[in-house]
Protein backbone atom coordinates (compact mmCIF):
# COMPACT_ATOMS: atom_id res chain seq x y z
CA UNK A 1 0.00 0.00 0.00
CA UNK A 2 1.32 3.44 -0.90
CA UNK A 3 0.96 6.44 1.37
CA UNK A 4 -1.53 7.96 -1.10
CA UNK A 5 -3.71 4.84 -0.95
CA UNK A 6 -3.38 4.86 2.82
CA UNK A 7 -4.64 8.45 3.03
CA UNK A 8 -7.71 7.51 1.00
CA UNK A 9 -8.30 4.45 3.18
CA UNK A 10 -7.94 6.60 6.30
CA UNK A 11 -10.91 8.69 5.24
CA UNK A 12 -12.97 5.62 4.49
CA UNK A 13 -11.93 4.26 7.87
CA UNK A 14 -13.28 7.33 9.59
CA UNK A 15 -16.55 6.86 7.67
CA UNK A 16 -16.67 3.21 8.79
CA UNK A 17 -16.69 2.13 5.16
CA UNK A 18 -13.68 -0.23 5.00
CA UNK A 19 -14.02 -3.99 4.62
CA UNK A 20 -12.23 -6.25 7.08
CA UNK A 21 -9.42 -6.96 4.60
CA UNK A 22 -9.00 -3.30 3.62
CA UNK A 23 -8.70 -2.40 7.28
CA UNK A 24 -6.05 -5.09 7.80
CA UNK A 25 -3.98 -3.77 4.90
CA UNK A 26 -4.25 -0.24 6.25
CA UNK A 27 -3.23 -1.29 9.77
CA UNK A 28 -0.11 -2.98 8.35
CA UNK A 29 0.84 0.23 6.58
CA UNK A 30 0.16 2.40 9.62
CA UNK A 31 2.35 0.16 11.80
CA UNK A 32 5.29 0.92 9.51
CA UNK A 33 4.61 4.48 8.43
CA UNK A 34 4.78 7.12 11.18
CA UNK A 35 3.56 9.90 8.92
CA UNK A 36 0.34 8.06 7.97
CA UNK A 37 -0.08 7.01 11.61
CA UNK A 38 0.08 10.70 12.55
CA UNK A 39 -2.48 11.45 9.86
CA UNK A 40 -4.80 8.91 11.46
CA UNK A 41 -4.64 10.86 14.73
CA UNK A 42 -5.43 14.04 12.86
CA UNK A 43 -8.42 12.42 11.16
CA UNK A 44 -9.70 11.26 14.54
CA UNK A 45 -9.29 14.73 15.96
CA UNK A 46 -11.05 16.19 12.92
CA UNK A 47 -14.02 13.87 13.54
CA UNK A 48 -14.24 15.05 17.15
CA UNK A 49 -14.10 18.71 16.17
CA UNK A 50 -16.78 18.28 13.54
CA UNK A 51 -19.05 16.55 16.04
CA UNK A 52 -18.71 19.62 18.25
CA UNK A 53 -19.55 21.90 15.33
CA UNK A 54 -23.01 20.42 14.93
CA UNK A 55 -25.76 22.99 15.09
CA UNK A 56 -28.55 22.11 17.47
CA UNK A 57 -32.13 23.12 16.74
CA UNK A 58 -33.06 25.64 19.46
CA UNK A 59 -35.33 24.37 22.21
CA UNK A 60 -38.99 24.57 21.27
CA UNK A 61 -38.38 24.49 17.50
CA UNK A 62 -39.39 20.84 17.11
CA UNK A 63 -42.56 21.40 19.13
CA UNK A 64 -43.43 24.47 17.03
CA UNK A 65 -42.81 22.52 13.81
CA UNK A 66 -45.05 19.67 14.95
CA UNK A 67 -47.85 21.93 16.12
CA UNK A 68 -47.89 24.03 12.94
CA UNK A 69 -47.72 20.95 10.72
CA UNK A 70 -50.77 19.53 12.52
CA UNK A 71 -52.62 22.79 11.84
CA UNK A 72 -51.67 22.75 8.16
CA UNK A 73 -52.73 19.16 7.76
CA UNK A 74 -56.05 19.92 9.38
CA UNK A 75 -56.44 22.71 6.80
CA UNK A 76 -55.72 20.25 4.00
CA UNK A 77 -58.48 18.00 5.23
CA UNK A 78 -61.11 20.68 5.59
CA UNK A 79 -60.45 23.31 2.94
CA UNK A 80 -63.91 24.81 3.41
CA UNK A 81 -63.32 25.61 7.04
CA UNK A 82 -59.88 27.01 6.72
CA UNK A 83 -60.35 29.71 9.30
CA UNK A 84 -62.37 27.94 11.92
CA UNK A 85 -62.79 29.72 15.24
CA UNK A 86 -61.52 26.63 17.01
CA UNK A 87 -58.16 27.02 15.33
CA UNK A 88 -58.08 30.71 16.06
CA UNK A 89 -58.43 30.05 19.72
CA UNK A 90 -56.05 27.17 19.76
CA UNK A 91 -53.19 29.05 18.14
CA UNK A 92 -53.83 32.63 19.17
CA UNK A 93 -52.44 33.56 15.77
CA UNK A 94 -54.53 34.32 12.77
CA UNK A 95 -53.58 33.92 9.15
CA UNK A 96 -55.89 36.01 7.02
CA UNK A 97 -55.99 39.73 6.23
CA UNK A 98 -58.75 41.74 7.85
CA UNK A 99 -61.25 39.22 8.91
CA UNK A 100 -64.35 39.82 10.90
CA UNK A 101 -66.36 37.10 12.44
CA UNK A 102 -68.61 36.65 15.43
CA UNK A 103 -67.38 34.04 17.85
CA UNK A 104 -70.27 33.16 20.15
CA UNK A 105 -70.61 36.57 21.69
CA UNK A 106 -69.69 39.75 19.82
CA UNK A 107 -66.00 39.71 19.12
CA UNK A 108 -64.23 41.67 16.45
CA UNK A 109 -60.70 41.01 15.36
CA UNK A 110 -58.43 42.63 12.86
CA UNK A 111 -55.74 40.25 11.79
CA UNK A 112 -52.87 39.78 9.45
CA UNK A 113 -50.19 37.39 8.53
CA UNK A 114 -47.85 35.63 10.89
CA UNK A 115 -44.11 35.53 10.75
CA UNK A 116 -42.86 39.04 11.22
CA UNK A 117 -39.57 39.70 12.87
CA UNK A 118 -39.93 42.82 14.92
CA UNK A 119 -37.70 45.12 16.89
CA UNK A 120 -38.75 46.39 20.31
CA UNK A 121 -41.08 49.28 19.74
CA UNK A 122 -40.25 51.54 22.69
CA UNK A 123 -37.30 53.46 21.32
CA UNK A 124 -38.53 53.37 17.77
CA UNK A 125 -41.64 55.52 17.87
CA UNK A 126 -41.57 57.97 15.00
CA UNK A 127 -38.77 56.21 13.16
CA UNK A 128 -38.87 55.26 9.55
CA UNK A 129 -41.60 57.14 7.82
CA UNK A 130 -42.31 54.40 5.29
CA UNK A 131 -46.00 53.68 4.90
CA UNK A 132 -47.41 51.72 7.81
CA UNK A 133 -48.92 48.50 6.56
CA UNK A 134 -51.79 46.40 7.83
CA UNK A 135 -50.97 44.55 11.02
CA UNK A 136 -48.77 41.55 10.25
CA UNK A 137 -49.18 39.77 13.54
CA UNK A 138 -52.07 39.81 15.93
CA UNK A 139 -52.31 38.28 19.30
CA UNK A 140 -55.07 38.24 21.86
CA UNK A 141 -53.64 39.64 25.07
CA UNK A 142 -56.70 39.92 27.25
CA UNK A 143 -60.31 38.72 27.28
CA UNK A 144 -63.06 39.56 29.75
CA UNK A 145 -66.84 39.09 29.75
CA UNK A 146 -69.18 41.91 30.85
CA UNK A 147 -72.65 41.64 32.48
CA UNK A 148 -74.54 42.08 29.22
CA UNK A 149 -73.06 38.86 27.82
CA UNK A 150 -70.60 40.61 25.53
CA UNK A 151 -66.87 39.91 25.57
CA UNK A 152 -64.12 42.50 25.59
CA UNK A 153 -60.99 41.50 23.67
CA UNK A 154 -57.70 43.36 23.67
CA UNK A 155 -55.51 42.63 20.68
CA UNK A 156 -51.84 43.34 20.35
CA UNK A 157 -50.81 43.97 16.78
CA UNK A 158 -47.49 44.26 15.08
CA UNK A 159 -47.00 46.03 11.80
CA UNK A 160 -44.15 45.60 9.37
CA UNK A 161 -42.51 48.68 7.91
CA UNK A 162 -39.51 48.92 5.69
CA UNK A 163 -37.00 51.69 5.32
CA UNK A 164 -33.54 51.98 3.85
CA UNK A 165 -30.63 54.25 4.52
CA UNK A 166 -26.89 54.49 4.97
CA UNK A 167 -25.14 53.65 8.21
CA UNK A 168 -24.66 57.33 9.00
CA UNK A 169 -28.46 57.75 8.89
CA UNK A 170 -29.72 58.41 12.40
CA UNK A 171 -32.89 56.31 11.85
CA UNK A 172 -30.93 53.30 10.63
CA UNK A 173 -28.57 53.53 13.58
CA UNK A 174 -31.42 53.82 16.08
CA UNK A 175 -33.16 50.80 14.56
CA UNK A 176 -29.95 48.79 14.67
CA UNK A 177 -29.32 49.78 18.27
CA UNK A 178 -32.81 48.60 19.22
CA UNK A 179 -32.39 45.37 17.27
CA UNK A 180 -29.00 44.79 18.88
CA UNK A 181 -30.72 44.45 22.22
CA UNK A 182 -33.79 42.45 21.16
CA UNK A 183 -33.84 39.71 23.76
CA UNK A 184 -35.98 37.40 21.62
CA UNK A 185 -33.69 37.04 18.66
CA UNK A 186 -29.96 36.29 19.00
CA UNK A 187 -29.58 36.04 15.21
CA UNK A 188 -30.90 39.57 14.78
CA UNK A 189 -28.60 40.81 17.54
CA UNK A 190 -25.56 39.32 15.81
CA UNK A 191 -26.55 40.82 12.46
CA UNK A 192 -27.09 44.24 14.00
CA UNK A 193 -23.79 44.08 15.88
CA UNK A 194 -22.03 43.16 12.66
CA UNK A 195 -23.35 46.35 11.09
CA UNK A 196 -22.73 48.53 14.12
CA UNK A 197 -19.27 47.33 14.99
CA UNK A 198 -17.51 49.81 12.70
CA UNK A 199 -19.48 52.75 14.09
CA UNK A 200 -17.83 52.79 17.52
CA UNK A 201 -16.79 56.42 17.07
CA UNK A 202 -20.45 57.26 17.81
CA UNK A 203 -20.93 57.40 21.53
CA UNK A 204 -24.30 55.64 21.62
CA UNK A 205 -22.91 52.81 19.50
CA UNK A 206 -19.84 52.43 21.71
CA UNK A 207 -22.10 52.20 24.75
CA UNK A 208 -24.20 49.53 23.02
CA UNK A 209 -21.05 47.57 22.20
CA UNK A 210 -19.92 47.77 25.81
CA UNK A 211 -23.34 46.71 27.10
CA UNK A 212 -23.52 43.78 24.73
CA UNK A 213 -20.02 42.67 25.64
CA UNK A 214 -20.85 42.83 29.32
CA UNK A 215 -24.33 41.36 29.31
CA UNK A 216 -25.44 39.62 26.10
CA UNK A 217 -26.16 35.93 26.75
CA UNK A 218 -25.11 34.95 23.25
CA UNK A 219 -21.35 34.58 22.77
CA UNK A 220 -21.67 35.34 19.04
CA UNK A 221 -23.01 38.79 19.91
CA UNK A 222 -20.28 39.34 22.51
CA UNK A 223 -17.59 38.43 19.97
CA UNK A 224 -18.96 40.95 17.48
CA UNK A 225 -18.99 43.61 20.21
CA UNK A 226 -15.36 42.79 20.98
CA UNK A 227 -14.42 43.29 17.33
CA UNK A 228 -16.10 46.66 17.35
CA UNK A 229 -14.21 47.74 20.46
CA UNK A 230 -10.78 46.90 19.03
CA UNK A 231 -9.84 50.50 18.14
CA UNK A 232 -10.78 51.73 21.61
CA UNK A 233 -8.90 49.28 23.82
CA UNK A 234 -6.79 52.11 25.22
CA UNK A 235 -9.75 53.95 26.69
CA UNK A 236 -10.11 53.42 30.44
CA UNK A 237 -13.84 52.61 30.26
CA UNK A 238 -13.27 49.96 27.61
CA UNK A 239 -10.30 48.53 29.53
CA UNK A 240 -12.43 48.17 32.66
CA UNK A 241 -15.10 46.18 30.83
CA UNK A 242 -12.47 44.05 29.09
CA UNK A 243 -10.96 43.16 32.45
CA UNK A 244 -14.39 42.21 33.83
CA UNK A 245 -15.09 40.08 30.78
CA UNK A 246 -11.71 38.41 30.95
CA UNK A 247 -12.29 37.33 34.52
CA UNK A 248 -15.98 36.46 34.26
CA UNK A 249 -17.02 35.45 30.76
CA UNK A 250 -17.75 31.72 30.46
CA UNK A 251 -16.76 31.53 26.80
CA UNK A 252 -13.05 30.82 26.20
CA UNK A 253 -13.21 32.40 22.73
CA UNK A 254 -14.41 35.67 24.26
CA UNK A 255 -11.74 35.51 26.97
CA UNK A 256 -9.05 34.92 24.37
CA UNK A 257 -10.15 37.94 22.34
CA UNK A 258 -10.30 40.03 25.49
CA UNK A 259 -6.67 39.16 26.22
CA UNK A 260 -5.65 40.25 22.73
CA UNK A 261 -7.39 43.59 23.11
CA UNK A 262 -6.11 44.24 26.60
CA UNK A 263 -2.46 43.70 25.73
CA UNK A 264 -2.79 46.19 22.86
CA UNK A 265 -3.27 48.89 25.42
CA UNK A 266 0.17 48.28 26.93
CA UNK A 267 -0.95 49.42 30.38
CA UNK A 268 0.95 48.01 33.39
CA UNK A 269 -2.31 47.02 35.09
CA UNK A 270 -2.88 44.38 32.39
CA UNK A 271 -0.12 42.15 33.79
CA UNK A 272 -1.91 42.08 37.13
CA UNK A 273 -5.21 41.16 35.48
CA UNK A 274 -3.57 38.36 33.53
CA UNK A 275 -2.02 36.97 36.69
CA UNK A 276 -5.40 37.08 38.39
CA UNK A 277 -6.80 35.21 35.39
CA UNK A 278 -4.10 32.53 35.61
CA UNK A 279 -5.13 31.76 39.18
CA UNK A 280 -8.60 30.70 38.07
CA UNK A 281 -8.40 29.85 34.36
CA UNK A 282 -8.89 26.15 33.60
CA UNK A 283 -8.95 26.33 29.82
CA UNK A 284 -5.50 25.35 28.60
CA UNK A 285 -5.68 27.42 25.44
CA UNK A 286 -6.60 30.60 27.32
CA UNK A 287 -3.90 29.85 29.91
CA UNK A 288 -1.25 29.47 27.24
CA UNK A 289 -2.35 32.65 25.57
CA UNK A 290 -2.19 34.68 28.76
CA UNK A 291 1.15 33.17 29.76
CA UNK A 292 2.52 34.09 26.37
CA UNK A 293 1.11 37.59 26.69
CA UNK A 294 2.70 37.95 30.09
CA UNK A 295 6.04 36.74 28.78
CA UNK A 296 5.85 39.30 26.01
CA UNK A 297 5.19 41.96 28.60
CA UNK A 298 8.38 40.73 30.29
CA UNK A 299 6.53 40.17 33.53
CA UNK A 300 7.37 36.80 35.00
CA UNK A 301 4.31 34.76 35.93
CA UNK A 302 3.36 35.04 39.58
CA UNK A 303 5.85 37.74 40.61
CA UNK A 304 4.33 40.94 39.45
Amino acid sequence: MTCEEARESLMLLSYGELTFDQEETLELHLAECPSCAAERLRMERLEEMLALGEAEPPPGLLARCRRDLAVKIEDENRPMRRFSPRRLWRDWFVYTPLWLRPVGAMLMLAIGFVGAQFVPAGSLAGLGGGAAAEPVMSRVRFVSPDESGRVRVVMEETRQREFTGYMNDHRIRQALLAAASDPADPGLRVESMELLKNQGQQDDVKQALLNALRADVNSGVRLKALEGLKPYSREPEVRTVLAQVLLNDDNPGVRTQAIDLLIQSNEPEVAGILQQLLEREDNSYVRTRSQRALAEMKASVGTF
Binding site: A55, E56, P57, P58, T164, G165, Y166, M167, N168, I172, L176, D185, P186, G187, L188, V190, E191, E194, L195, N218, G220
Partner: peptide, 16 residues
Protein backbone atom coordinates in the same frame (compact mmCIF):
# COMPACT_ATOMS: atom_id res chain seq x y z
CA UNK B 1 -29.88 47.51 5.18
CA UNK B 2 -28.03 49.87 2.90
CA UNK B 3 -24.49 50.74 3.91
CA UNK B 4 -21.81 52.90 2.38
CA UNK B 5 -20.56 49.87 0.45
CA UNK B 6 -24.00 49.21 -1.03
CA UNK B 7 -26.58 46.76 0.26
CA UNK B 8 -25.31 44.39 2.95
CA UNK B 9 -26.21 40.71 2.87
CA UNK B 10 -28.12 39.59 5.86
CA UNK B 11 -25.92 37.13 7.70
CA UNK B 12 -27.35 33.71 8.30
CA UNK B 13 -28.86 33.83 11.70
CA UNK B 14 -26.68 32.13 14.22
CA UNK B 15 -28.09 28.94 15.64
CA UNK B 16 -27.73 28.41 19.33
Amino acid sequence: VETEDGPMDRMDSVPE
